[in-house]
């Protein structure tokens, strides 16, 4: 191992980690407020990736602007799926919401497939790069991580600095308490769910800007799984937890890739994925409430 390899691992582990954080908080917001696990999470990320692919690839809209389009699309999809499906299942047994969100995910995947086909696609948005310690620092990846960070900061400000955010936190901490102070809990559910979907679709755009490849209708599934690992690590329902856990996960993933690639005769990429789930099992066994919960 050389210094450059280690530097690259830390740099790209952190950058993708920030994006993992953004791609997870939506799951956290929805679970925190509504106590619903969105199994279709990854499909919303995929929709965001396609939004950037189509708007930039076909229409030439600058990728950072496509994030705004994803946020809007997320609002529309969030409101439609909330009022059509989720609203009726908030108090239903968990299995009902698991199946319903799973079905929403499949519906999104198949709709995108019907429109754009199942080919794996990509695009090129080149901002150049700098070379440090023999490592190429790709500016578009840096930009993607920065945009992701901005989204996280905006979400944080909304939840910790606004009245709506205070009402959301009140519902998270005590639903009946929120009712007796006059908070319209149904409305907070609708807004929180929609907000969660908005940030998730937006994270798909950020991810697409980072990867610029590997975009296909089923690309979201792996992010649903990674999202669960990160959300559990950070403590379901915690935004800062999701962010820190996302960065840790990115570093962990890249470091395991680096170490595994030193061993001959194995496929490091495939094994790296299974290591994520080993991590999930370990956390669930040792600290099921998340690493950062008191």
């Amino acid at each position: 191992m050389e210094v450059g390899q280690i530097f690259a691992t830390i740099l790209y582990g952190t950058l993708i980690g920030v994006i993992y954080g953004v791609a997870t908080v939506g799951l956290n917001v929805i679970f925190g407020v509504l106590r619903i696990v969105n199994v279709g999470h990854g499909a919303f990320i995929m929709v965001g990736a396609y939004t950037t692919l189509v708007l930039y690839g076909s229409l030439g809209v600058p990728p950072p602007i496509t994030i705004a389009a994803s946020i809007l699309l997320g609002a529309v999809l969030g409101l439609i799926t909330y009022y059509l499906v989720i609203k009726h299942l908030v108090d239903a047994p968990e299995l009902a919401t698991l199946i319903a969100t799973f079905a929403i995910g499949i519906l999104l995947q198949e709709t995108v497939k019907a429109i754009y086909g199942s080919d794996t696609r990509g695009f090129s948005w080149n901002l150049g790069f700098a070379e440090v310690l023999n490592v190429n620092i790709v500016y578009s990846r840096l930009a993607a991580a920065l945009l992701g960070l901005l989204l996280l900061i905006a979400l944080y400000a909304l939840i910790y600095r606004t009245k709506l955010g205070l009402a959301m936190r009140a519902v998270v901490q005590d639903k009946e308490g929120a009712m007796v102070v006059g908070i319209n809990v149904d409305r907070i559910y609708a807004l929180s769910y929609t907000l969660g979907i908005m940030i998730t679709v937006a994270s798909g755009s950020v991810l697409a800007i980072y990867l610029q490849s590997g975009i296909h209708p089923y690309m979201g599934e792996i992010y649903t799984l990674k999202g669960f690992v990160i959300a559990v690590m950070g403590g379901l329902g915690s935004i800062i937890g999701a962010f820190v856990a996302g960065v840790l996960f990115g570093l962990f993933e890249n470091a395991s890739y680096l170490i595994l690639s030193q061993i001959e005769g194995i496929q490091p990429l495939v094994l790296t994925r299974s290591i994520a789930f080993l991590l999930l099992l370990t956390i669930l066994l040792l600290k099921p409430t998340g690493l950062f919960r008191r």
């Binding site: 205070l166 936190r169 901490q173 005590d174 308490g177 007796v180 102070v181």
Partner: peptide, 14 residues
């Protein structure tokens, strides 16, 4: 049914 992680004053403001 208080909001345990908020301060006394934040509870009152809510």
């Amino acid at each position: 049914h208080l909001f345990p992680e908020l301060s006394v004053e934040e509870n009152l403001l809510l």
